[in-house]
Design a protein around this nucleic acid. Structure first.
Length: 415
RNA sequence: GGAGGGGUGGCAGAGCGGUCAAAUGCAACGGACUGUAACUCCGUCGGGGAAACCCUACAUAGGUUCGAAUCCUAUCCCCUCCA
């Protein structure tokens, strides 16, 4: 019953663990063998970067390109204007066009690392759904497309049904997201012959709607492919750390910290992450992931190097590793540690209080927290425990190493 | 439109006049153990201050009280049942 794909792309996807569901596995496989298939994934333009939660989709686009097809990055410039579709939290504040434009630029920078853009047949293409959604006319939309969606069917989709079952509100706006996303797919099929939409498994319903709509309106057969919802072995969603999200661009998160995130992968996830987020051969990923005891630490270093290499460049990965070895294996100082310069204007005669120092260095989110850290004995300066929260520290041009616990370090100097 | 229930810290969820910066669980942070892992255990967990101490907080705005997350009034929002 299980179909074994012959195309290089699907073969990779299947063996590496990217595949959850496909609308028609064999059909897609045939299309991929027959010629170049443009495939897209949509990204919200709600921040100026993406974080590791999107890595799996990014890698999928990269594989698509690597196996000879055409990745299309769809920026949700249009859909981002109406807010958060799945936000059961407080409504997100509306984004201005300028903000969305800036966000798209930032996200593009992330993709420039992973994809090759251009005009060639398998070069990546960037699209923005504002190009067609902004001018959409409600009446015409209803007349031409609304007729193709039945409420009966939409109610059967998990994304809708679960919400209704749980008696959580599902707004009309949110409900319409599905239609807009279906419209995106159809429009991109019309414009560029896009034949595949990928996404997380939570997008399944939206994707299927797009496939149906494209068939009805354009009379073209297109496909959908979803990835499993990625969770860590302890069941939590991946991508968050002490300081917040693990961003892919360096303006938001230093390469050293990015590297550390991967270095700290738990044993149980190492093999899986290697398969999903690196391009090492699957056999190698499996071998590394199966290492036992402290040996698996080498696998984690490889993971960190590979992923950091992709997202930040090989030099960044090397620098991060060198610093990590220096800091963790020798207890020294590495150049690549996050460095914070404190302007001389912020220093008094005696310097700056330790508490403030830790806050400024980003190792504590408030003075209270810094004091707590000190009281608990977790705060160190150049490896000497800080005992007095009231202590004043004089800074010079030579950096001081601040440590919060055993893992979090930063450098501070006068600047 | 009518009747009832409810809005509490990052989340979940107690409290229902003082001892409440608010039980408990999860998450987070520090420590012990280790392999920069997991598990377990211990501690911490609103903000400012070196400290004494002070300041914000239990949907919003008022009020009653010596004293309110707790009572009253109005407003907003959510849920359930009926029409």
């Amino acid at each position: 019953m299980t179909y074994t794909p012959k195309s290089e792309f699907l073969h990779q996807m299947q063996t590496r663990g990217f595949m959850q569901d496909c609308t028609d596995l064999q059909g897609l496989d045939d299309a991929l063998i027959e010629g170049v298939v443009p495939g897209y994934i949509g990204f919200d333009a709600t921040a100026d970067s993406l974080h590791v939660g999107s890595m799996i989709q990014i890698m999928m686009l990269r594989w698509l390109q690597k196996t000879g097809h055409k990745p299309v990055v769809l920026m949700g410039g249009g859909t981002s204007k109406i807010g958060d579709p799945s936000g059961k939290d407080e409504a997100r504040q509306l984004l201005t066009n300028d903000q969305i434009g800036e966000n798209i630029k930032g996200i593009r920078k992330v993709f420039d690392r992973f994809l090759t853009f251009g005009d060639g047949p398998s070069d990546a293409l960037q699209a923005n759904n504002a190009d067609w959604l902004d001018t959409l006319n409600y009446i015409e939309f209803l007349r031409d497309y609304g007729r193709h969606f039945t409420i009966n069917r939409m109610l059967t989709f998990d994304s809708v049904r679960l919400r209704l079952d749980r008696e959580q509100p599902l707004t009309f706006l949110e409900f319409n997201y599905m239609l807009l996303q279906a419209y995106d797919f159809m429009e991109m099929n019309r414009r560029w012959g896009v034949g595949l939409q990928m996404g997380g498994s939570d997008q399944w319903g939206n994707i299927v709607n797009g496939v149906d709509l494209t068939r009805r309106i354009n009379r073209n057969t297109v496909f959908g492919l979803t990835t499993p919802l990625l969770t860590k072995s302890d069941g939590s969603k991946m991508g968050k750390s002490a300081n917040g999200a693990i961003w892919l661009n360096e303006e938001r998160l230093s390469s050293y910290e990015f590297w550390q995130f991967w270095r700290n992968t738990s044993d149980a996830d190492t093999g899986k992450f290697l398969r999903l987020f690196t391009e090492l051969p699957v056999d190698e990923c499996n071998r590394l992931g199966a290492l036992q005891g402290s040996e698996i630490n080498e696998a984690k270093i490889i993971l960190a190097n590979e992923v950091t290499g992709l997202a930040r460049g090989p030099e960044a990965a090397q620098a991060a590793e060198a610093t990590a070895r220096e800091v963790f294996e020798k207890g020294g100082i590495g150049d690549d540690l996050p460095t914070v310069a404190i302007p001389a204007a912020d220093l008094s005669e005696a310097g700056i209080s330790v508490v403030q120092l830790f806050v400024r260095a980003g190792l504590a989110s408030s003075g209270k927290e810094a004091k707590r850290l000190i009281a608990e004995g977790g705060a160190r300066i150049d490896d000497a425990p800080v005992t007095d929260a009231g202590q004043m520290i004089g800074l010079s041009d030579a950096p001081l190493k601040l440590s919060a616990g055993k893992k979090r370090h930063a450098l501070v100097q006068r600047g």
